[in-house]
Write a protein that binds this DNA or RNA. Structure first.
Length: 778
RNA sequence: GCCCCUGUAGCCCAAUGGCAGAGGCAGACGACUUAAAAUCGUCCAAGUGUGGGUUCGACCCCCACCGGGGGCACCA
């Protein structure tokens, strides 16, 4: 994942990019054509806030930081393709955001609607549902409020099912955790919509339920207190004042309180009645905050016997509880515990005796005949709100004309460039700063030529990152966002690396974009990232590093103290990549020591370049080739820490061979030293390059190629077999690796140690697992 | 409350169901040195969170519990 340019690189970047770089360098060594790109996710609020503080243009701050980060990355030896850089804030990039927006617009995937939206009073802008975490703004932790506004949306809900179903392709290749989070976020649930007639109202109220089988147990109805529907029902029913009072109390309650599940239920009777379609029963309608306005239809049928929330409410308000599924448990009305298990229907007229599943299906089918119900799916996923009332983002390429309405900016007029920020007041005030850029805003309508106004909102920056991987294939293409041939060559991304913080937002949006662009014929694949690796975080003393906490470790300091290679090595060696690294447990000086140790190996090689390794020590050669095999396997399975450990072993073995074995002139020592250098070139490129030179090679080791592994040297001639009696080890013998179970068993029985132990005992069973062990059970 | 991950030497971490230790950090001792650093070498330590189960055999598989981390959370 590409970075946001907020100041210099930090320890987190150092880990992520070290891991990505090892993978890239490995496959280059293996002879593959690797595209390892970098760019900057350069639009966004921090630049704008910095500009406000400094009274300057966000461009300055942004490009300064990009230059800083870029220099640090080069120093950090990231093997990026520096010819393919992109900045999302460049017009050459964001014009294609606008182009995609227009394509979406043409297909009805981009639309504007008026509805209550999440509003961050601090950022003074709207937020997507995904950017609200536990009721707080994900960026600044301010409590998010609701505001009714006309905003632009992307119709991601059209893709809910495919986003869900296609996860099958990702199974085993993406962390299970991420897939689970996406599934939860999409939140598909299967059930039915059922119409309840309302006394004194021409239109029925539609509810969504996952338990149509319990319809006969619906003893009241609840509507979300903050919904339009609730107010409408309250009007004219004589409870207006109480309703407003209750609504007000709910609104003023803190989000924390609202979210606590064990809180006492509250609500108000609306003095209205609905008719249960299955039995014609008249049931009271209540308004409460435990029903959510923006999920389902904002209204539910309450079945207190079989839903805990409804039961809590019924008990608080003294409402009827009727059991309609016999689960052979105690009466919920008495225990206060709703029974939601399987069972047979009771108190349900002609449906009695059916089980939950069949009963539900039958009830829905019968109601459907009367057009009162339909089986349906419901999703938690909402459409993606993409407009933002801020300056530093992609202008939405729409012109509003009094006569023609929304008019797309013609493609040949793209990009709609951001005006200079110099004369604008960027301070957040609820309306986009672009609204005050008179010259920019006022344009002629492309359709009728009348005076019209540009849309003044900018796009959510997640739009930028939803397709940047496509642009990397075609950074120099100017007549389209990306070239299909290039895309076919390079994509989908074989290996994506990034933090789990983007599990939902970025990864879901990118998947959506990929599918939408596929449907339009611009792509030939439907999932953008084949494999995903989530690196852990870099912590200090168990918590995130931050200046305010005073536990900040500065990457530039670490690099200055220990050197780039040692820091990269420390990051990779600290543990499995997906685990968090606590910097207090890491020893960069240990890494320095190891690297010097490896480096000295190269110095101690005295044989000439190109000497035939088969002349050298067979024992050391075996160690070398086994190590290379293990290192390859470990790298390919992301166990970089293990790969490093294997290199350390090889270094130790080589050291021993030089000092107390065959000596530095042996051909196998050179082979080992070169293997060490190449293996280290993934992690510690500077050290490896120097070793390579000391070993008499010319630059560059980065493309030296991965050494060929001789399978004969990897498979041992002799292995140690374990001889057990009743699972306890009695002896070890050397055997050929291809020995048969029978032969091994025979050897075991002939073994003097075993014979003595057996002492003629009755053998019950012999387990022979050639060539590793024999277990004799007596 | 529900779901997922995790628990191995003082610490970070390895071990296709088959000898619990590969590697590192820290520590101890020795060699080299006038001394120190660096280097080299030797050593040190856990029986795998707890209790059951499956198996000839369990760090590994199953169940329960405990500790740590994470996700979701009035989603009808």
């Amino acid at each position: 994942m590409f970075p946001y340019p907020s100041g210099d690189l930090h320890m987190g970047h150092a880990e992520a990019y070290a891991l990505g770089d090892v993978i890239a360098r490995y496959w280059v060594q293996r002879g593959f054509n690797v595209l390892h790109p970098i760019g900057w996710d350069a639009f966004g609020l921090p630049a704008e806030n910095a500009a406000i503080k400094r009274n300057s243009d966000p461009r300055e701050w942004t490009y300064e930081n990009i230059a800083t980060q870029r220099a640090s990355m080069r120093r950090y030896a990231c093997s990026f393709d520096w010819e393919r850089i992109l900045n999302t804030c460049d017009p050459e990039y964001y014009r294609w955001n606008q182009w995609i927006f227009l394509k979406f617009y043409e297909r009805g995937l981009a639309y504007r609607k008026d509805s209550p939206v999440n509003w961050c009073p601090d950022c003074q802008t709207v937020l997507a549902n995904e950017q609200v975490v536990a009721g707080l703004c994900e960026r600044c932790d301010t409590q998010v409020t609701k505001k009714k506004l006309t905003q632009w949306y992307f119709k991601i809900t059209d893709y809910a099912d495919r986003l869900l179903d296609d996860m099958e392709q990702l199974e085993g290749k993406w962390p299970e955790k991420v897939l689970t989070m996406q599934r939860n976020w999409i939140g598909k649930s299967t059930g039915a919509k059922v119409d309840f007639a309302v006394e004194g109202r021409s239109k029925p109220i539609t509810i969504f339920t996952t338990r149509p089988d319990t319809l006969f147990g619906a003893t009241f109805m609840v509507v979300a207190v903050d919904s339009e529907l609730a107010r409408e029902l309250a009007n004219g029913s004589g409870v207006e004042a109480d309703f407003e009072k209750y609504l007000e109390s709910v609104r003023s309650a803190s989000e924390i309180d609202r979210l606590s599940t064990d809180r006492k239920k509250s609500g108000i009777f609306l003095n209205r009645y609905a008719i249960n379609p299955v039995n014609g029963e008249r049931i009271p309608i209540w308004a409460s905050d435990y029903v959510l306005a923006d999920y389902g239809t904002g209204a539910i049928m309450a079945v207190p016997a079989h839903d805990q929330r409804d039961l809590d409410f019924a008990r608080a308000m003294g409402l009827t509880v009727r059991v309609v599924v016999d689960t052979e448990e105690e009466d919920p009305a008495a225990t206060g515990i709703a029974t939601d298990g399987n069972g047979l229907l009771i108190n349900s007229d002609g449906y009695d005796g059916l089980d939950v599943k069949a009963g539900g299906e039958q009830i829905v089918a019968d109601l459907a005949k009367k057009s009162l119900a339909s089986a349906t799916e419901n999703y938690r996923l909402r459409d993606w709100l993409i407009s933002r009332q801020r300056f530093w983002g992609t202008p939405i390429p729409i012109i509003h004309c009094q006569k023609c309405g929304e008019v797309p900016v013609p493609e040949d007029q793209l990009p709609v460039r951001l005006p200079t920020a110099k004369d604008l007041d960027l301070k957040p005030k609820g309306v986009s700063p672009l609204a005050t850029a008179d010259e920019w805003v006022n344009v002629d309508c492309p359709k009728c030529g009348a005076r019209a106004k540009r849309d003044t909102d900018t796009m959510d920056t997640f739009v930028d990152s939803s397709w940047y991987f496509l642009r990397f294939t075609s950074v120099n293409v100017n007549d389209k966002p990306f070239d299909l041939q290039q895309v076919k060559t390079w994509l989908p991304v074989d290996q994506y690396v990034g933090g789990v913080t983007h599990a939902i937002l970025h990864l879901l949006y990118s998947r959506f974009f990929t599918k939408a662009l596929f449907d339009m014929g611009y792509l030939d694949f439907t999932e953008p990232f084949t494999r995903l690796l989530n690196q852990g975080m870099v912590l200090m003393d168990g918590s995130a590093m931050s200046k305010s906490r005073g536990n900040l470790v500065r990457l530039s300091d670490e690099l200055a103290h220990h050197g780039v290679d040692a820091i990269r090595l420390s990051m990779v060696f600290a543990g499995p990549p997906e685990d968090d690294i606590d910097w207090k447990d890491v020893s960069p000086s240990g890494s320095v020591k190891f690297l010097s140790r490896a480096w000295r190996i190269a110095k101690d090689v005295t044989s000439p370049v190109g000497i035939d390794p088969s002349q050298g020590s067979i024992d050391l050669r075996k160690v070398t080739h086994k190590a290379l095999a293990d290192i390859s396997f470990a790298v390919e399975s992301f166990r970089f820490n293990v790969a490093v450990a294997r290199v350390m072993e090889l270094v130790n073995a080589t050291r021993k061979a030089i000092d107390t074995g065959v000596g530095g002139g042996d051909a196998a020592v050179r082979e080992a030293a070169e293997a060490v250098a190449i293996a280290l070139s993934l992690v510690a490129p500077y050290t490896a390059e120097e070793m390579w030179e000391i070993l008499g090679h010319s630059p560059s080791i980065a493309r030296a190629g991965w050494p060929a592994i001789d399978p004969d040297l990897v498979s041992a001639e002799k292995v140690i077999a374990i001889l057990q009696i009743n699972g306890k080890i009695k002896d070890r013998i050397e055997v050929a690796p291809d020995i048969s179970d029978q032969e091994l068993e025979k050897l075991a029985l002939q073994n003097p140690q075993i014979a003595a132990e057996l002492n003629g005992a009755d053998i019950k069973k012999i387990i022979s697992r050639a060539p590793k062990l024999v277990n004799i059970v007596i």
